[in-house]
Structure formats: structure tokens, C-alpha cells
């Protein structure tokens, strides 16, 4: 590592082959936030999956901790152009959370404490590609990074990995989320550089 490393507003490094187009590498973990950081008492925290028939599946924090967890090491790519490689997390796979959920929905609208939302196809949450993550780099997930728990969907731009996740609404239709309704791409594949609508 050089003496000077590019920060959030630093000079972009040229993209290497391991980076999606237009991204630069960062070693730190920039904090992006569209509002105040919600503080949820752990005894009131819950995660709820609501099906298209309004059936609710709920997990308290204790319930979540009792589930088997994964420790994925993944690259993350923010639409503001920084990428961070080899990040280590701990969380519960959405495959585990969805295992007893009966649904015919094609889409998911993710809700967060604080009101944030983001949408994605339900299939992108399955097959070992998404987690409700509660530890980062060996420590409890800090609130500024979405703790106590955030969604982790590393194969899409990181705005899809909703901080402070509180639930997922399963839907037949694709309802745009917070950034998707204000110019950002509906899907957000970093390798196809799907930053904005029309990309």
C-alpha cells in the first residue's frame, strides 16, 4: 500500500481486471447514508418476511442468532464507484430464512428501519447469494454500516444491500425502491455498469 491511499473523494485508480467497469479500489469502508442512523433496541428488533398473501414470517434477534450462519468473503461495489475486495461477513442466508416460506412471488421489496427501501428479483436473494448479515470483519456490525443487521447482496451494487434491514415484502410486481424511483437502475449489476435507468 502506498503512503497516500485514495479515500471516498480521492483520485480513482485505474480499474483492474478484478473490478467492474468504472470502479476504483478502496481499502477503507466509506459510509454512505440517506438519513439518520436508526437505533433499534435489540429486544424490539425483528425481521419479517411478508408473502404476497400477507402471510408473515417473523424472527426476533434471538431467533436470528439461533439459526445457522455463513461466513461469506465477498467483493462489494458501490454505485458511487468505490469497490472493496475480500470483505468478510457473518450472517444468515436468505435460503435459510426462506426455507419455510411458501411463495409464488417474483420480486422482493426490502424495507429498513428508518424507511429505506430497495427492490430486486426474489431469485437474486436465493441460491447462496444473499444474507442478513450481522458481523463484519470479525466484529458486530456497526450501526453506521447498517447494524445490528443489514442485507448483503454483493453481486449487485451495494445500495441493494439495505442497511438496518427489517423485512422483505414478496410481490408479484416490481415496486421501485428508494433510489430506484429516483433515477437509479432497477437491477444494478455492477459488471454491466447498470448505475442509472437506461444503462
Amino acid at each position: 500500500m502506498g503512503i497516500v491511499t485514495p479515500g471516498f473523494r480521492g483520485r480513482p485508480r485505474p480499474s483492474g481486471p478484478e473490478l467492474p467497469p468504472g470502479q476504483y479500489l478502496t481499502e477503507d469502508f466509506p459510509v454512505l447514508s440517506a438519513g439518520p442512523t436508526p437505533r433499534v433496541p435489540m429486544d424490539r428488533w425483528e425481521f419479517v418476511i411478508t408473502t404476497e398473501t400477507s402471510r408473515e414470517h417473523r424472527w426476533s434477534w434471538t431467533d436470528l442468532m439461533a439459526l445457522p450462519s455463513d461466513t461469506p468473503t465477498v467483493d462489494i461495489h458501490c454505485v458511487t464507484k468505490w469497490s472493496k475486495l475480500g470483505t468478510t461477513w457473518q450472517g444468515v442466508s436468505l435460503d435459510t430464512l426462506m426455507s419455510d416460506v411458501d411463495t409464488a412471488a417474483d420480486y422482493a421489496l426490502v424495507h429498513s428501519y428508518g424507511g429505506y427501501t430497495t427492490n430486486l428479483p426474489l431469485s437474486d436473494l436465493l441460491d447462496g447469494r444473499a444474507w442478513v448479515a450481522y458481523r463484519f470483519d470479525g466484529d458486530d456490525l456497526h450501526p453506521e454500516h447498517g447494524g445490528p443487521a443489514r442485507l448483503l447482496v454483493p453481486h449487485l451494487y451495494f445500495w441493494k444491500s439495505a442497511k438496518w434491514v427489517r423485512g422483505i415484502q414478496l410481490r408479484f410486481d416490481d415496486e421501485p425502491g428508494f433510489w430506484e424511483s429516483a433515477g437509479y437502475h432497477d437491477y444494478g449489476d455492477p459488471w454491466r455498469e447498470q448505475r442509472y435507468q437506461g444503462d
Binding site: 454512505l32 440517506a34 445500495w159 433510489w179 429516483a182
Partner: peptide, 11 residues
């Protein structure tokens, strides 16, 4: 205004 985000958000 929250500007450290993919857009500007005014609350």
C-alpha cells in the same frame, strides 16, 4: 441534507 449518498436527500 444527506449528501453522502447516491443522491441528495433533504429531510
Amino acid at each position: 441534507v444527506y449528501a453522502s449518498a447516491p443522491g441528495m436527500v433533504a429531510r
